[in-house]
Design a protein around this nucleic acid. Sequence first.
DNA 1: GTCCCTGCAAATCCTTTGCACTCCT
DNA 2: AGGAGTGCAAAGGATTTGCAGGGAC
Lengths: 130, 130
Amino acid sequence: MRTLKHSRQRESIKNCLMQRTDHPTADMLYLSIREEFPNISLGTVYRNLKLLSELGEITRFSCGDGSEHFDYRTEPHYHFICKTCGAVYDMPAEIVRDTSELLTAQPPGRVDSHTVFFYGECKTCQQKKS
Amino acid sequence: MRTLKHSRQRESIKNCLMQRTDHPTADMLYLSIREEFPNISLGTVYRNLKLLSELGEITRFSCGDGSEHFDYRTEPHYHFICKTCGAVYDMPAEIVRDTSELLTAQPPGRVDSHTVFFYGECKTCQQKKS
DNA sequence: GTCCCTGCAAATCCTTTGCACTCCT
DNA sequence: AGGAGTGCAAAGGATTTGCAGGGAC
């Protein structure tokens, strides 16, 4: 296991992600962080987001728009992603039946917090169509 | 609404996807279909997969490995994706509490079949680590 | 001093697109 | 004939990576 050293850039990326609730992409985050670190590079943002998600400190997910989105929430919750407008809503964890069932079910495994995604169409978009 | 014309290539892509249970990527599908249509191009595969998913005939999803995966199953079911080995398992729809709850819950919407994803670690990978 | 981390730019990977031509209907 | 669909290659966008210099311990 590699030893991490402190880095102001990484710290800033974590803080920035913690403060936002909009599940930003790497590029959106990059634009924000540039206000504090005008010289930070996009590569550094990507490198740290990858590192943090491998450490399990953040979650990454695709919402079908071609780029990855990131999330820092620490309480267990799931996501609802509207395929029409791209909006991302947080969902209560209780919507899924006891996940320990998964351990004994035939497709086996442990489900990580933050990593359950529902894709569909949100009410707002449904109403626009009718 | 545009009018579809028959195409042997598209037919072959659909058949191929129907016969497989491994949730292939565009490239994996391309390699298979080349055996029947040696001249088919990757662009055609992408074009048709995009078309079919827009028509709702197939589902596309990301499993964190950088490329999109496709699925043709018609019965409602969900996916469990192992973040360690990348395996994709089909999950029974009953694992989620009545999705009509979603219609009245505060983050609103209709969840599409095939579009619920659980990410975690499968039993096999868990055991390898212990 | 050592080794991790950064900025920069080039490279890579996946997916989409423009164009001329072919195949349906 | 008309317009979708195709193959090919180039373009586009997102993410990763190599390298030389800077910073943490």
